[in-house]
């Protein structure tokens, strides 16, 4: 029951995100009900809360691992099994960076783009093969697919971290997140390549010669290919510059009558 309560509270981790100590109050908010039951004495509870008021930052999807380990450690301190009252702070400072790197690279760098690519492929396939009335499927797939993995991981990581405690570090290192990420990136590349293929198939193939006008008409596939190459080469620049460059490029093409 308390695990479910903590699980719900972890969604508020960044509700008071600030530039000075980032997620500190969010972290306190998650721990507060646990501290209330662990430390009945108000002064002891105050000291425990003050231990966790400092700077804290991690990936919000990975917070459950740290929360469970800190609660286990605080539990040991409250029961007198652990004498080192700085241990929970050590856990936080040691764990926050590495788990954040895993969360950032897997969830935000791999899983979210991957699910986006699946949805983009669905949109383009809806135009190419299926009915336009199936458009609504793409955003539904995006949100369901993303959250099935995300929420399952968050809940699993909380429950398993409570049980394994410090052994969780070993488990994370065995998960081979990078390897899984690489596989998803390759599948993502295949999916986006398919999306490009179907996009070009739908919009990029017009006759090379306009017979009525007796003149050479630039095939769209050539124009699309050029745009594609330019955007790939300019991939490093900021998206906003890319966006307005794309608009200006379209104006030039429109002005030239291409």
């Amino acid at each position: 029951m308390i695990k479910n309560f903590i699980f719900l509270r972890t969604f508020f981790l960044q509700a008071l995100w600030n530039f000075e100590r980032l997620q500190n109050i969010g972290f306190l908010y998650i721990l507060y009900p646990v501290f209330k039951s662990l430390y009945k004495d108000k002064e002891q509870r105050k000291q425990a809360l003050l231990r966790h008021i400092g700077f804290f930052n991690t990936n919000p999807y990975m917070i459950n691992i740290i929360v469970a380990m800190v609660i286990n450690s605080e539990n040991n301190i409250a029961c007198g099994k652990e004498q080192n009252i700085k241990k929970p702070e050590m856990i936080k400072s040691v764990m926050a960076g590495p788990v954040a790197a895993i969360g950032d690279s897997f969830f935000w760098g791999t899983w979210r783009p991957f699910v986006s690519f699946v949805s983009i492929l669905m949109i383009i396939l809806s135009m190419n093969m299926f009915s336009v009335s199936l458009f609504w499927i793409a955003p539904i797939i995006f949100i369901v697919l993303y959250n099935v993995v995300h929420l399952s991981f968050r809940y699993w990581s909380l429950v398993i971290s409570f049980r394994l405690n410090e052994k969780m570090i070993k488990l994370i290192s065995k998960l081979e997140i990078k390897f899984i990420g690489d596989i998803f990136r390759i599948i993502g590349l295949i999916i986006i390549t398919l999306a490009i293929f179907f996009y070009f198939k739908t919009f990029g193939l017009v006759p090379v010669i306009d017979m009525e006008l007796h003149k050479l008409v630039y095939p769209d596939i050539f124009i699309y290919g050029t745009i594609f190459l330019i955007s790939f080469l300019l991939g490093r620049i900021r998206p906003v510059i890319m966006f307005y460059f794309a608009l200006i490029f379209s104006f030039i093409l429109g002005y030239l009558g291409i």
Binding site: Y199, S231, L247, S250, Y255
Partner: peptide, 25 residues
């Protein structure tokens, strides 16, 4: 002319997007 260019952009912008996405790979 701007309206025509905007109409073209409707089809060109996703291609720019594809390029931006592929750059990540």
């Amino acid at each position: 002319q701007v309206i025509i260019a905007l109409k073209k952009s409707w089809y060109y912008l996703p291609v720019f997007g594809f390029g931006a996405v592929l750059y990540n790979f």
